Simulated assay, not measured.
Amino acid sequence: MQNVFEKTLVEDKELPWEIVGDKVKRKIMSYSKDLMLVKVAFEKGGIGAVHKHPHLQISYIANGVFEITIDGETKLLKEGDVYFVPSDILHGAVCIEDGVLVDVFNPMREDFIHT
């Protein structure tokens, strides 16, 4: 994967998609040690498995429809909606209609970087 560390001007077309699951792929758009922005594309039926991490996360639904679960509460969210995940809280997503999430993490997700 191309290193996008602290890249200030990013063109989507220059970055490759990384397959991260069945019907799920992502692009790490840019990051520093304190902040990371990731675009995640889902096909209908794609699942972001329930998990937790120490990072703060806020996600914007760029398009599509998702069933989002955070700390046992589930809600259907669509284009223009946002959800926030505090540190170490279980959360996950199920794609109801093809869509894209824009995830922001603080600090950056070191586990996403392949060297």
Results as ranks from 00 to 15, higher is better:
Lys44Trp: 04
Leu35His: 01
Arg109Tyr: 12
Val82Glu: 01
Val10Arg: 07
Ala41Ile: 03
Gly46Lys: 10
Phe66Thr: 00
Asp111Leu: 05
Pro107Arg: 00
Arg26Val: 09
Ala62Asn: 14
Lys27Glu: 13
Lys39Asn: 12
Val100Pro: 05
Tyr31Asp: 00
Ile47Met: 14
His53Asn: 12
Ser32Lys: 09
Glu11Leu: 15
Ile89Gly: 03
Ala62His: 13
Lys25Ala: 14
Asp22Ala: 14
Val4Phe: 04
Glu14Gln: 08
Lys39Arg: 15
Lys75Pro: 07
Ile113Gly: 00
Leu90Trp: 14
Ile89Asp: 06
Asn63Asp: 07
Asp12Gln: 07
Glu97Phe: 02
Phe105Arg: 11
Ser59Ile: 01
Val50Lys: 01
Leu9Ala: 13
Glu79Tyr: 03
Lys7Ile: 02
Asn106Lys: 08
Ser32Ile: 02
Gly21Tyr: 06
Glu110Tyr: 04
Glu97Lys: 12
Asp12Ser: 09
Glu11His: 15
Leu15Ile: 11
Ser30Glu: 03
Phe5Tyr: 14
Arg26Gly: 00
Ser87Thr: 09
Lys27Cys: 08
Ile28Thr: 06
Asp34Arg: 11
His53Ser: 09
Pro107Leu: 00
Leu15Cys: 00
Pro107Tyr: 07
Tyr60Thr: 03
Val82Asn: 04
His55Ile: 02
Val104Cys: 13
Ser32Asn: 04
Glu18Lys: 13
Asp12Lys: 10
Leu56Lys: 15
Arg109Val: 02
Arg26Cys: 07
Thr8Leu: 10
Asn63Ala: 14
His114Asn: 14
Lys52Trp: 03
Phe84Gly: 04
Val4Gln: 12
Glu73His: 05
Cys95Ile: 01
Gly45Val: 10
Trp17Gly: 03
His55Pro: 05
Arg26His: 08
Met36Ala: 07
Arg26Asp: 01
Phe66Met: 08
Thr115Arg: 12
Lys33Ala: 06
Ile89Arg: 15
Asn106Phe: 10
Thr74Gly: 08
Pro54Leu: 09
Val104Arg: 09
His53Val: 01
Thr69Arg: 11
Arg109Ser: 09
Phe105Pro: 08
Val82Asp: 01
Phe42Thr: 04
Leu9Asp: 06
Glu6Phe: 05
Lys27Trp: 02
Gln2Cys: 01
Phe105Gln: 10
Lys23Ile: 03
Val85Cys: 05
Ile19Trp: 03
Leu56Phe: 14
Val85Gln: 02
